[in-house]
Design a protein around this nucleic acid. Structure first.
Lengths: 200, 200
DNA sequence: GTCTATAGGATGATAGAC
DNA sequence: GTCTATCATCCTATAGAC
């Protein structure tokens, strides 16, 4: 389970730390995460994390950047995919929920979205958010109303995942109702992927 | 501008601190907020904040509790209001956006929603979230789908406010599009209330 | 490249005066 | 009730050895 940071070269190790950082930031938020937590999860020393990324803030910015890249990549692939005859909106929705496989990815973004007050993180968050919006309107040809509706559903999913509704409350009838209507055809996927992962 | 904490009695001062704490927590999040910031914003000493609420965590829980109470109060009043012939959904939507008047209220809730991993805050957040959902389905007679859609719009609003889209980006055409479609009839209200307030 | 040791600065909470 | 002073802890970042 614990990643083996030894016998890895630069690029791989960097990516490993970014993966783990994404998970920890997703669990505890930007301020709530310590570089020591990221280090332990990655199997390296805390100063090494700082050495590699400069500051905790820069590390978080790289996490955000990677998250956005993976998000837009997934969207582009879903758009290209002609094997399904589902409408584009549904394909993009599936791609979005599929991102839950990358633990902490959507939640790290969400944490950034609510830190808009922060000069550095806020600016990055706004830019990233607008990039997604522009993809929907420019590349996916969504109307403004469609894009807004799609993103609303995404923010709802992020919230449900952040609340860990999928963990402890999966037996609650209200939650099942909610999940069923947030994303009917992907509840199982959502439930399967959204499990909390301890990063203590 | 700065509240005058002197010449106030227990209850008033407690409420004042809760108001200021709501604003500061909304800006910086639970972990990102220091009790010293809350104290300074309230015009009292930092140890006094701790004295009055016990711990930072308990203070935040009281902020959440108050926020939920105000939220449900606003919903109940909107439901009772028969002066408008708007449908209930629209009246509730207006009530929700009106809560932006209470600076940091929706954002403090949002910060709690993404901290579901935390044993104490997560539990409170889930309970509060479900209370809102139950109001919509039980009291407002929304279907599960309608409730989900309504809440999705709410999470979208929270995100836009958290991103401070309303502050710096109000000239951006994409943002105007977004805002126009998130809540058409209340964009002005949203823009008017959503201004960041420095709580340094 | 990666670690150990540690400095330097903040923060939540307590003690105790008034 | 409210403040000042302060402690103990934690955390980011640096220094420097290997």
């Amino acid at each position: 389970m614990k990643p083996d940071a030894s016998r890895m070269r630069g690029e791989d190790r960097r990516e490993l730390i970014l993966v783990e950082a994404t998970r920890v930031f997703g669990d505890h938020g930007y301020v709530g995460t310590t570089t020591a937590q990221v280090a332990e999860a990655s199997g390296v020393s805390q100063p090494y994390v700082i050495r590699m990324f400069g500051t905790k803030e820069k590390l978080f910015l790289e996490v955000l950047d990677r998250a956005l890249r993976l998000l837009l990549d997934a969207f582009r692939e879903a758009q290209r995919d002609e094997t399904s005859d589902d409408p584009l909106g549904r394909r993009l929705g599936r791609a979005y929920v599929g991102l839950l496989e990358h633990r902490g990815l959507l939640l790290s973004l969400m944490h950034a979205f609510v830190l808009g007050k922060d000069p550095v993180i806020g600016a990055a968050a706004r830019t990233g958010f607008l990039a997604v919006y522009r993809f929907l309107t420019d590349d996916a040809d969504f109307s403004a109303a469609e894009a807004s509706e799609f993103i609303s559903g995404g923010m709802m999913i992020n919230t449900m995942v952040g609340l860990r509704m999928t963990d402890e409350y999966r037996t609650d009838a209200d939650v099942r109702d909610l999940l069923d209507h947030v994303f009917p055809e992907k509840v199982d996927l959502l439930l399967g992927f959204a499990h909390a992962t301890d990063t203590e």
